[in-house]
């Protein structure tokens, strides 16, 4: 009943979400750390930029990404000349756009988690001779597990649900950029309501499970009281 095309599309959707979440986790933690603990005069601008995807139409970002990827512009030309790669309408191109578009969903929960840890815990660790890295790994991370789960789950869920940026940057190429949300749109256009329904049902259930997980975790945890 499930054809290969259906499975491939879902696998591609999962692959995009896993990669996006992984890359954002690695990139996002240092950024969240800086935003949580450092003061610099450009900080409000950086915070605003990171939050832009929450208010901006995906088409705006998609449009700028396409411009950037174009070999007629510096970044795109650089990629063609040095790596012989064109990012428009490729999985890598969609992945980069997806990482940028999911930034706030990773960084904001991590930043909130870090700022909710009392400053004295970090300082206590420093006075006990522990480096910033040791403090991060042994004091900060263990005391912000709910925030980490929220950040990862929200990024993953948001990425699965992304449509606008992907269709702008990636189009609808099976096995390359055709993720579930695109496939639904495509199937509806072709009046294949049954297939559209299958995709929609899977996305609905996956998102529901992830959000339920996030809410149940946030309900259980209370703020840190020393």
């Amino acid at each position: 009943m499930l054809d290969q095309d259906f499975i491939n599309t879902l696998l591609l959707t999962g692959k995009l979400a896993v990669w996006t979440t992984f890359i954002l986790f690695v990139l996002g933690f240092p950024v969240a750390y800086l935003l949580a603990y450092k003061k610099f005069w450009l900080k409000p601008v950086v915070e605003a930029l990171i939050s832009m995807p929450m208010v901006l139409p995906p088409t705006v970002l998609g449009f700028y990404m396409l411009l950037a990827y174009s070999p007629q512009n510096t970044f795109g030309r650089f990629l063609v000349e040095h790596f012989n790669t064109r990012l428009a309408f490729s999985f890598q191109g969609v992945l980069i756009a997806s990482v940028i578009f999911s930034l706030p969903f990773m960084i904001q929960p991590l930043q909130n988690g870090l700022t909710s840890i009392p400053k004295s815990l970090r300082e206590a660790s420093y006075t006990l001779g522990k480096s910033k890295l040791t403090t991060f790994l042994r004091v900060l991370i263990p005391n912000m597990i709910p925030s980490i789960i929220t950040a990862v789950a929200m990024t993953f869920a948001h990425c699965i649900g992304e449509f606008g940026v992907i269709i702008m940057v990636g189009g609808n190429i099976p096995g390359e950029t055709r993720v579930a949300s695109i496939a639904i749109y495509d199937e509806v256009q072709a009046m294949n309501y049954h297939t559209a329904n299958q995709y929609s049902f899977v996305l609905f259930i996956v998102s529901l499970v992830i959000l339920t997980l996030v809410y149940s975790i946030n309900k259980k945890t209370t703020p840190i009281n020393l």
Partner: peptide
Amino acid sequence: PPQERNVGYMFQDYALFPNMTVEENISF
């Protein structure tokens, strides 16, 4: 930096690490 001064600092809120047991706090 505080790491190199080796002072014992007891904070007003005690700043015990919530993720560690009493024993782990001390051995930390």
